[in-house]
Each structure stands twice: as structure tokens, then as C-alpha cells.
Amino acid sequence: MHALLDNTWKVLRTAPPTALFGLLVIITILLAGLFAPWLAPYGETQVVGPPSLPVGDDEFFFGTDEIGRDMFSRIIYGARNTVGIAFLTTALAFSLGAVLGLLAAVKGRWVDQVLGRLVDILMAIPPLIFALLILTITGTSIMNMVLVIAVLDSTRVFRITRASAMNIGVMEFVEAARLRGEGLWWIIRHEILPNITAPLAAEFGLRFCFVFLFISALSFLGLGIQPPTADWGSMVRQSSNLLAFGQLNPLVPALCIALLTVSVNFVVDWFLYRTSGLKD
């Protein structure tokens, strides 16, 4: 345990400032999301003051929204809702895409062909358009949105998993395992997975950013997470008309979104640099 801490410290000391900044932001937002009810001064949907107070108000630091709810509290709850839902979606997309990608890479032949063509077609349609089409049919609910985005996004995970697994799959140590008579599952678990965890972990970070921005955009368009649930994207939309009066209210949740994605990107960049050993 001590060695582990020691190691972490060593790694962190070599991290560039951007990555440290990113880690700090991610941890802060995670904590805020986890302990939202204890941290937030007011309730998620509680009307606490006059509507549309500007940012920098003495009592409500981030101001209040159009019906007088505390923006600061809703930002904290938003960390739980928006980030939680985005994480869930990414995890779902990842499980689906990675399992199918590995299967396609190792099985090859018709499994690969069928899955590959299917993914080609799904990827040929712009994701936002596809999502809008499907959401029109199924109606806007969080469950539907999570499923639709997870399926659409899994195509990208599928591609990268398949490609990295193929790169490893043609290595002679995998051939040696096949010739030894090892089973498919053993080869995936012992020969392939350990060699592709690093690129997959980085991809998870990037996919999360994409999903998170995607959900925020949908919510912003009024087609994602629905009120009264506190959510950063819809908060931007709801307070957007205050901007015309010189109030900064909509920028606060928008900045939160950007802050989190930038942070994740910084950390992923550093991680890629470390694991690939490449100077670029």
C-alpha cells in the first residue's frame, strides 16, 4: 500500500501542469456529484429567492434561475445528474463496443464481416441526426436517450477495439498460443487484453467527453434530460435569454461543461504520452 502511494506520487510529480489541473477538476466534480445533498446549500428543485438574480449576488453566488432556484445548488446537483448519466452511457457504449470489437477481431470471418458492415452503416449517418430521428420516434426520456447514444457511440468503440485487437492478433505470440491449442477466451484474456488496455482506457476518456458533450447538446436543444432535473445543458438553455440583459447566468453551467471535458482531455493526453512513450 505504501509502495503504491509512493508510486502514485512519483508519477504525479512528472505530470505536466495541464494534467494536474485536469485531475484536480475531475476529482472536485466527482466529489461534488457524490456528496451533492450535503454540499448544496439548497435543494435541487427548491425555489429559494426572486427569479433571475445575476451572477455575483451576495446570497446566491451564481444567481438564481428563471423561477428563482439557486444556480449554485443546481450546478452541484447537475454534477451528479449530467456526469452520472454521461458516465453510465459511456460505460454501456464501451461494454457493447469492446465485447463486439474483440469478438470480431478474434473470430474474424463472417462475424467480423456482419458486424463491420453494420457499423459502417451506423457510422455513415451523422450521430446527432440519428439520435434526433430515433428520439422523435421513442419520445424524449432519459432511458431512451442513454440507450440511443450508447448504441451509436459503441460503433466507435467497436472500431478502435477491433483495430487494436487485430494489431495484437497478428503477433506471433498469439499465433503461438493458438498453435498450443489455447481456447478463444484464454487468448483474449491473457494475450490480447493486457496489450490493449492502455489505448482502450484513453479511448474511454475521449468517448466520455464526446458523450458528455452530446448529451449536453441534446439537453440544450430541449431534447435530452428534462426539467425539473438539474442538468448543465438544460440550465444553459433555460437561462439563455438573460444574456441579452448583460447577465452571465447561462455561461456558468456552460463553463462547467467545458471545464470537465477540457480536464478529461488533458489527462487523456498525458496518459497517452506516458503509455505510448511517443514524443508526439
Binding site: A217, F220, G233, L251, A254, A258, N265, D269
Partner: peptide, 28 residues
């Protein structure tokens, strides 16, 4: 990297706030 990570509406609102609301050069 920052530009890629930011949602489109953030950039849009910042631009609106600065150039339309504060400076009044362009319509909102």
C-alpha cells in the same frame, strides 16, 4: 484542445456577450 472540448453554445454565448451585448457590434 480547449476549443474541441467546449460545447458550441459556450463559444456562442461568450461571443454574443462580448460582441453583441457589451460592444453592440453585431446583433444577438
Amino acid at each position: 484542445l480547449i476549443a474541441i472540448s467546449s460545447p458550441e453554445f459556450l463559444a456562442a454565448y461568450i461571443l454574443i456577450f462580448v460582441f453583441a451585448v457589451q460592444l453592440g457590434w453585431f446583433p444577438t
